[in-house]
Amino acid sequence: MFTKVKDFFKKETVCCIAFLLAVVSMFFIPPSVNYFSYIDFRVLALLFSLMAVVRGFSSIGVFTRLGTLLLHKVHSLRTLAALFVFLCFFFSMLITNDVALITFVPFTILVLSMADQRQALIPVIVLETIAANLGSMLTPLGNPQNLYLYTISGLSLWDFIRIMLPYSAVSALLLILFLLVLPKVSFQAGNFSTVQTESSACSTDKPASSRSHRNPRILFAAYCILFLICLLTVLHILPFQIMLLIVFFSFLILDYHVLKDVDYFLLLTFFCFFLFIGNIKQIPFVHDLIAVLLVQHEVSIGIISSQIISNVPAAILLSGFTNNYSALLIGVNLGGLGTLIASLASLISFKFYANTDGSNKKRYLGIFTLYNAIFLVILFGLYRFFG
Rank of each mutant, 00 (worst) to 15 (best):
L174D: 11
S156E: 06
T194S: 07
L174C: 13
L155P: 00
S171K: 05
A189E: 14
S153C: 05
P183C: 07
Y167T: 04
I161S: 04
K184N: 15
L165H: 06
A189R: 15
P144C: 10
I152V: 13
S153Q: 07
T139D: 02
T194F: 02
E198M: 07
Q145T: 01
A172G: 11
L147V: 01
F187K: 10
P166V: 08
F192H: 12
S168D: 10
D159S: 13
F192E: 06
P140S: 05
P166D: 06
P183Y: 12
S171F: 02
L149S: 08
Q196L: 12
F192Q: 13
L177A: 15
I152A: 07
V181E: 13
F187W: 04
L149W: 03
L182G: 08
S153V: 07
M137W: 02
N143L: 08
A169Y: 15
L174H: 03
Y148I: 09
S171R: 03
L175D: 11
T139L: 05
L147Q: 07
S186E: 13
A169G: 05
L180W: 13
S136P: 05
N191A: 13
Q196W: 13
V181R: 06
P144V: 10
P144W: 11
S171V: 03
F187H: 11
W158E: 12
L155F: 05
R162P: 08
E198Y: 06
S136H: 05
S186P: 01
W158H: 04
M137Y: 02
G154D: 03
N143I: 06
P166C: 07
G190A: 00
R162I: 05
A189I: 14
L179M: 04
P183E: 04
G190D: 02
V185L: 12
K184H: 15
Q145K: 11
L155W: 02
L173Q: 00
F192C: 15
G154C: 00
R162H: 12
A189D: 08
P140A: 02
V170Q: 00
N191T: 10
F187G: 15
G190F: 01
V181F: 13
G142C: 03
E198A: 10
L165V: 06
S156K: 03
V195M: 07
M164Y: 02
Q196H: 14
M164F: 09
S156I: 00
T194C: 01
Q145A: 01
L179Y: 05
S153R: 10
F192Y: 13
L180D: 13
A189P: 08
V195R: 12
L182P: 03
V185Y: 10
R162D: 14
M164L: 15
N191Y: 09
L141T: 14
T139C: 01
A169L: 15
L157K: 04
Y148A: 06
G135C: 07
